[in-house]
């Protein structure tokens, strides 16, 4: 068999086939790879501005962190679900401090300590009474959540933040 001046040897024929097969395999892998890549860039969680009711503002204890749980309706990709969330709240006169209970290091839930601070049971990140990191691997303070008082009730915005990074970055809500 002749192609121009070059003789098509058995070896060359097989090499050509191999290249063609590799190209086909690559072409077949491209659409799934693109789907994996592109769909990972879709935003997660509920739309912006999901607020949750934490109860009567006046009834919260002055100067002491308490855990409050609430449920938010959210559309998670194709699934409609009720997500339960836990935050810590502290009243300070007319104002409030609300922080997420998720550790900024790796996303475990932190617990209050007797001294008014917090500690994460997973990697022992410790935070002071204002959520500032004292020791451990947490790259930033506990994440504060926006709040407002409506008709005497405290409402907070449901938000989640990217763990592991020093800069606070909203990933949900």
């Amino acid at each position: 068999m002749h192609l121009g001046d070059r003789t098509m040897t058995r070896r060359r024929f097989l090499e050509l086939w191999q290249t063609l097969l590799a190209a086909l395999a690559g072409a077949a892998a491209l659409p799934p790879a693109l789907f994996w890549w592109r769909s990972a860039r879709l935003p997660a969680g509920p739309e912006e501005g999901t607020w949750a009711d934490l109860g009567r503002a006046r009834r919260l204890k002055e100067g002491q962190w308490v855990a409050r749980s609430f449920a938010v309706e959210r559309r998670d990709r194709w699934r409609q679900e009720t997500l339960r969330e836990v935050v810590y709240v502290r009243r300070r006169g007319e104002g409030f401090d609300v922080v997420s209970s998720l550790c900024p290091h790796a996303g475990c839930r932190v617990r209050p300590r007797d001294d008014g601070g917090f500690v994460c049971p997973c990697h022992r990140s410790a935070f002071d009474g204002d959520g500032r990191p004292l020791e451990g691997p947490s790259p930033r303070p506990l994440d504060p959540l926006p709040w407002k008082v409506e008709k005497g009730r405290l409402v907070v915005r449901h938000q989640r933040f990217r763990s592991g990074v020093a800069e606070r970055q909203v990933v949900e809500g």
Partner: peptide, 9 residues
């Protein structure tokens, strides 16, 4: 994870 937070995907 298929997104910035754990999700249905």
């Amino acid at each position: 994870r298929g997104g910035p937070a754990l999700n249905a995907a």
